[in-house]
Amino acid sequence: MTIHTKAGGVEFRNVTRRYGAVTAVNNVSFTADPGTLVTLLGPSGCGKTTTLRMIAGLETVSGGQVFIGGKDVTLLHATDRSVAMVFQSYALFPHMTVLQNVAFGLEMSGMSRQDREDKASEGLRVVGLAGYEKRLPSELSGGQQQRVAVARALVLEPEVLLFDEPLSNLDAKLRRRMRDDIRDLQQSLGLTSVYVTHDQEEALAVSDKIIVMNRAVIAQEGSPRDLYERPADRFVADFIGGANLVEGRILSRDSGKAKVDIGGVEILVPDRPLDAEDVLVAIRPNAITLDTSDEAAGLRVKVRKTVYLGSHIEYALESDLGEFFAIDHNVAAAVKPGTSAVARFIDRGTAMVSR
């Protein structure tokens, strides 16, 4: 029995969710196009999980409208929406076999027992767990349990598949593998997926679009590259990938580049339409290179700390402009703590943001 998928888009129109005097989501509007994976990213308490639960119908809407597949589902109960959710806790029944767990959601569908089991077996095959049907959840690894949870959602053939912090219970190596598996599965099946995480690297790795939320509103949305290379403000620049933030003043603009003064040092950064001449410059850690030669010109720094992490070196730098955090993949030429150097900035890793 084949699993069929019908991707439906998601649209929020001016959606608000209040709990008494507390506004958890405030007048939020966005779209998730059919067949794409959209990530809701932000710190704890920003409203991302509440937003996901309103898509699922697990939270009621205080104002605005929610559409799935072009249909207004604002007032529909969760069971009447064509969505399925993969929870952080997996929520597997410990006394049921893997096959029974996957087939459980189909019991109210009117299918015969044999058809339910056939479909559950196909779901397990899709997620790479064929042959695990008779095992109990306790006999599986964390990653395998997560696959069972995904298979259980897939067999419902939802228009939208929702992920609520699905990898937070896994170790770092397995988390990296599972995020790739989820992305590959989403793309191969053409599933519309909305994914919640607070992990910036995870969001960058799996998403077609990222919606960064802060204090119940959308701070910025766009492709992973847009948000990383062109953050809108201080919060997004710091939250997506981390950035060194420095006060600067625009000196001139030409051919898409802006010459900016930071503490007496002139640097070139990609231009953007900001009205004020005084700006913040966001400098990514991997956009900083160190030059220890005596004749080098640039921002004078002192290496306060050097940390070897195998694939790269992390530096804590001191300067007249404050502390900088830098990353260098040239581990063979590490600069020792206490060394004076000059920091240079690669324009591709820098951005002007509003203050």
Rank of each mutant, 00 (worst) to 15 (best):
P337G: 13
L290S: 05
L191P: 03
L140I: 14
E11C: 04
F104P: 05
D261R: 12
V38M: 06
R17S: 04
E314T: 08
M213P: 03
I218L: 05
N101Q: 13
T60D: 12
V148A: 10
R348N: 14
A216Y: 04
P231R: 09
S112K: 11
V303L: 06
L58Q: 13
D347K: 10
T97H: 09
S311H: 08
N244Y: 00
L140K: 12
A149V: 01
A56S: 12
N286W: 03
D226C: 12
L185D: 08
S223F: 01
Y228A: 09
T36W: 02
A216E: 06
G264C: 10
A334D: 08
E107P: 00
V86K: 08
A130C: 03
P43H: 08
Q220S: 03
M1V: 11
V212L: 15
G143I: 07
S62F: 13
L290V: 05
I346A: 14
A7R: 00
D275L: 04
V28D: 01
A237N: 05
K71S: 11
V155F: 03
V194T: 07
T31M: 07
H77Y: 13
E107Y: 02
V196D: 07
D254Q: 13
F104S: 04
E318H: 12
H77T: 07
K209P: 01
A172H: 00
A149L: 06
E165Q: 10
A332S: 15
G64E: 13
N244A: 00
F239T: 00
M1G: 10
V331T: 15
G128D: 07
E202Y: 06
A333V: 02
F325K: 05
M178P: 08
A151R: 03
A351F: 06
V194H: 06
T292C: 07
V196R: 04
D347V: 15
V28W: 08
L274W: 00
A351G: 09
N101S: 06
I288D: 03
V331G: 09
N101D: 11
E59N: 02
A258W: 06
H4K: 15
I267A: 03
V331E: 01
I283G: 02
G143T: 10
I218K: 04
A32G: 11
P285W: 01
F104T: 07
Y308A: 04
A219W: 02
T306Y: 10
R135P: 10
H329G: 02
I250C: 05
A78D: 13
G263P: 11
N27K: 13
K209T: 14
F163T: 06
N214P: 03
T51L: 02
R348T: 12
D278R: 11
I55M: 11
I68Q: 00
F104D: 08
T60I: 03
Q144G: 10
T97Y: 07
K302E: 15
F325H: 14
A172M: 03
R17N: 10
K6W: 02
R272H: 09
A32E: 04
S293Q: 02
V22I: 12
S223I: 08
L124Y: 04
D180N: 11
